[in-house]
């Protein structure tokens, strides 16, 4: 039994074009699954559907063997209590400073002790190098800084499973390593993660499994070595060839 099991997931925004077309993925406890694929292949959509932000048209998602019922509020709530997502566009709350962005959900939604949460949040923000930006608002932060606040915010919820959507895309090269280091530490601690990333070196280093997507379908699944060094399908060869030559 897998920790997270996605089976035949199909989704659409407009009712016509299938943005996800029968996607199946298994993630074991403590595993790190990376999703790669060209722009528009449905990677972000996959994470959105898992989080219950977009209702799937068909297929199911199982958590420790229990199927998630996306039509049922309670079921979705239970799932969201165990997951955190870092959005590609960070999506920080614009009306809150960095610290409040991190503390709001643990305090107001999870009803944890405000002082403890704040202490923890300051620590988390310090870890991602924002100890001096606690009281800056999103529009006063650079893209990379916002992204790191978003990561701290996701971690403050103490998720079992972390979904990361291209968390290094807005960072400059120096910061990429900082953020990747943070993820490495999480990996060492045994956090289960699903990562959408274009950082092929990083993906190769950290992933227990790599999934290649295109046009809403899973094209190929395998270990990092398999996907990068010995891709089976021509589509995958093509894509990997292009990014490795980069």
């Amino acid at each position: 039994m897998h920790h997270l099991e996605v089976d035949g997931l199909t989704a659409t925004y407009d009712g016509k074009i299938l943005v996800l077309d029968g996607v199946s993925i298994q993630v074991g406890k403590g595993e790190i699954v990376s999703v790669i694929g060209p722009s528009g292949s449905g990677k972000s959509t996959l994470l959105r559907v898992i989080m219950g932000l977009l209702k799937p048209k068909a297929g199911h998602v199982k958590l420790d063997g229990d199927e998630v019922d996306y039509g049922n509020k309670k079921s979705v709530k239970a799932l969201r209590d165990r997951f955190s997502i870092v959005f590609q566009q960070f999506n920080l709350f614009q009306n809150m400073d960095a610290l409040r962005n991190v503390t709001i959900a643990p305090v107001k939604i999870r009803k944890r002790d405000a002082q403890k949460v704040e202490k923890e949040a300051i620590e988390l923000l310090g870890k991602v190098g924002l100890g001096d930006k606690l009281h800056s608002y999103p529009d006063e932060l650079s893209g990379g800084q916002q992204q790191r606040v978003a990561i701290a915010r996701a971690l403050a919820l103490r998720p079992e499973i972390l979904l990361l959507d291209e968390v290094t895309s807005a960072l400059d090269p120096e910061l990429v390593n900082e953020v990747l280091d943070a993820i490495r530490i999480l990996a060492k601690d045994g956090m289960t993660m699903m990562i959408v990333s274009h950082e092929m070196g990083f993906v190769r280093e950290i992933s227990t499994e790599v999934i290649m997507m295109d046009e809403g379908k899973v094209i190929e699944v395998g270990s990092a070595e398999q996907i990068f060094d010995n891709p089976q399908t021509s589509r995958c060869q093509d894509f990997v060839g292009k990014i490795l030559r980069h």
């Binding site: 989080m51 219950g52 709530k77 959005f87 566009q89």
Partner: peptide
């Protein structure tokens, strides 16, 4: 809309 989505994802 993403502000709603984000809050949703955090169980607001």
């Amino acid at each position: 809309q993403t502000q709603w989505d984000t809050a949703d994802a955090m169980n607001f």
